[in-house]
Design a protein around this nucleic acid. Structure first.
Ligand SMILES: [Zn+2]
Ligand SMILES: [Zn+2]
Ligand SMILES: [Zn+2]
Ligand SMILES: [Zn+2]
Lengths: 156, 156
DNA sequence: ATGGGACCTCCAGTAACTGGAGGTTCAAGG
DNA sequence: CCTTGAACCTCCAGTTACTGGAGGTCCCAT
């Protein structure tokens, strides 16, 4: 049985995040010691790994919840899992397309900057007026609510 | 002078969002009618357009604040504007790279699904175990806090 | 027995909005 | 002039997926 800190080290998940997953019902309530501390078994470790891997692939928690439900009974058809994955793929592709066009716009802006004063900077000018843009509209990709964990050293 | 709803229509910004920008000091407090309603002039319209265009290009509000400060006095050097834009470009490129690798992983997963039960679905299996992945680590791109406005019909 | 690191709960904050409740104001029609 | 009703006002809570801190308890190795 692992304490929460060990589970954290094992899965690369911050301790408050684990408790958060428990709060929102993604992780079941673990056993407790007499002194009320959480103890986790192997199943929980796997479950958390699954969650984290899905998060790393950009799945929102709502999808992960559905995927966990599915993987909880192995006899069901995998159709909905595939649907979720395909949907996620479409999302990713949508975001890729938007970002590619943003990239283009930004490149153009920056290229045109001659390095003078603000008054004649093409960056500022382009930002002020979308008419300078090539794309007729920017569709900023939907968030995808990613976790960012800043460079963390391994718990060695 | 425009009422807030007209400004909203003019710039494609939701009314609560305009008030929010005012709250956080991105937009100055506008004049008011005797009955306490906001009235906006042309400068405000331009300022809001600038903000929105930047948002559409993925700039975070903190950067937009800096860009607005710059564009407020045109004699300064545009160097920092360019730095911000370049930084944003790097961000976008980072996110493009991550998404490309996510896309690859998702494609592989989906391709391998034979359509049976959950027990032998490769999608579920791949999600459960990162060892099936090609990339040795997924770096989920930082959020970039985009606004999503779901298909909204024009206030005609 | 004691020290200190790991643990506990609760709460607030992040980013950038979004929506609702409950109450006013504006402008047009009668 | 008066009445509607749409648009406006303020304040507050909720969204997503966490993250961090305060203040207090527990575990276990010495
Ligand atoms: Zn410039
Ligand atoms: Zn543009
Ligand atoms: Zn399958
Ligand atoms: Zn993986």
């Amino acid at each position: 049985m692992l304490a929460i800190g060990q589970l954290s080290a094992e899965t690369g998940t911050k301790v408050p995040t684990i408790r958060y997953y428990e709060d929102i019902g993604l992780l079941p309530q673990p056993e407790r010691t007499a002194g009320n501390q959480r103890r986790y078994g192997k199943r929980q470790v796997d479950r958390l790994r699954f969650i984290r891997h899905c998060r790393d692939l950009g799945f929102p928690l709502s999808d992960i919840r559905a995927l966990l439900d599915l993987s909880d009974d192995p006899d069901r058809s995998c159709a909905s899992a595939d649907t979720i994955a395909r949907h996620q793929l479409r999302e990713v592709e949508r975001r890729l397309a938007s970002l590619a066009s943003l990239r283009q716009e930004l490149c153009r802006m920056i290229d045109q900057c001659a390095g003078g004063t603000v008054a004649d900077c093409h960056v500022i000018e382009s930002l002020a007026d979308h008419a300078h843009c090539i794309a007729d509209r920017h569709m900023t990709p939907a968030p995808m609510e990613q976790h960012v964990d800043p460079p963390r050293r391994d718990p060695a």
